[in-house]
């Protein structure tokens, strides 16, 4: 096994080859697993016409962290593929909603499990699959369905990525990753679906051989670059959730 470390010195260096028009996924569900530091670096980098893939577009919590809404505000986004363009609670306003509703940016709204499976399929060499999710809804209108064993299913296509930006707790220099608790969420499937996976890592990046092979959550073959998150305030870390009242 090659002993060359995948560690990169800065977030800026990690994202510098992102071209205009790239398709990039951001891991994360609520705060855990969101690559805040890589998103911030992408804001500074300025690549345009991006297609972004994530569960949500962010910005529902205060203080606001780097999110898809900010990339939209920065004029960098062509389209977003996500499970929410708006909150289901009318009292919760996500910054992205107004840009989508006014037509400033395109979006494709995808059920969360379908999003996860489209990424998994892309990483697993499966071009498409049938799912029972969204059958009989507006999302299925005009699309291919098929009855298999008496039940109707909707055809969904794999979602391959140019880049996956993810966050992990621990990494060795070859890119083997461990996630803590619900930090894992979409991160492993996004890593398999991407040509280039960049992980921001909470702990110091340890030498190859330090992590027990049985305890690796995402194998280093799916991970191309690693950046250690510096302590706050230089590095961005998940914060305590602020409860919002109706």
């Amino acid at each position: 096994m090659t002993q060359k470390s995948k560690q990169v010195g800065t977030f800026r260096e990690a994202v510098q080859d992102v071209p205009d028009g790239a398709t990039i996924a951001f891991g994360g569900f609520a705060m855990p697993g969101v690559p805040f530091n890589l998103i911030k670096a992408l804001l500074e980098h300025g690549a345009k016409q991006l297609t972004l893939v994530a569960n949500t577009t962010g910005g529902a919590q205060q203080p606001r962290m780097p999110d898809i809404g900010m990339l939209v505000e920065n004029g960098q986004v062509r389209k977003v593929i996500c499970a929410f363009t708006a909150s289901t609670r009318p009292t919760d306003v996500i910054p992205f909603t107004k840009y989508y509703e006014s037509g400033e940016v395109d979006a494709e709204l995808v059920p969360q499990g379908t999003l996860a499976e489209r990424l998994r399929a892309a990483g697993a060499g499966i071009p498409a699959f049938y799912t029972p999710t969204a059958v009989g809804t507006e999302l299925a209108a005009g699309r291919e369905t098929r009855v298999i064993n008496g039940r109707e299913y909707l055809l969904e296509y794999a979602l391959p990525l140019d880049y996956a930006f993810i966050r992990a707790t621990r990494a060795d220099a070859s890119g083997n990753l461990q996630f803590h608790r619900s930090q894992r969420n979409f991160c492993p499937v996004m890593a398999t679906a991407a040509r280039v996976t960049i992980a921001e890592v909470d702990d110091h990046i340890v030498p190859v051989g330090t992590i027990d092979p049985d305890q690796v959550h995402t194998a280093g073959i799916f991970v191309h670059r690693l950046v250690k998150v510096p302590p706050a305030p230089e590095g961005l870390w998940p914060t305590r959730r602020q409860e919002r009242r109706r």
Binding site: P90, Y100, E101, V110, Q112, G113, T114, T133
Partner: peptide
């Protein structure tokens, strides 16, 4: 999805409801 809105918030609801 609420009335008059282009998008909405699906999350995991469609997968859960169907299955």
């Amino acid at each position: 999805k609420i009335a008059g809105q282009k998008g909405g918030g699906i999350g995991g609801a469609m997968d859960l409801a169907a299955c």
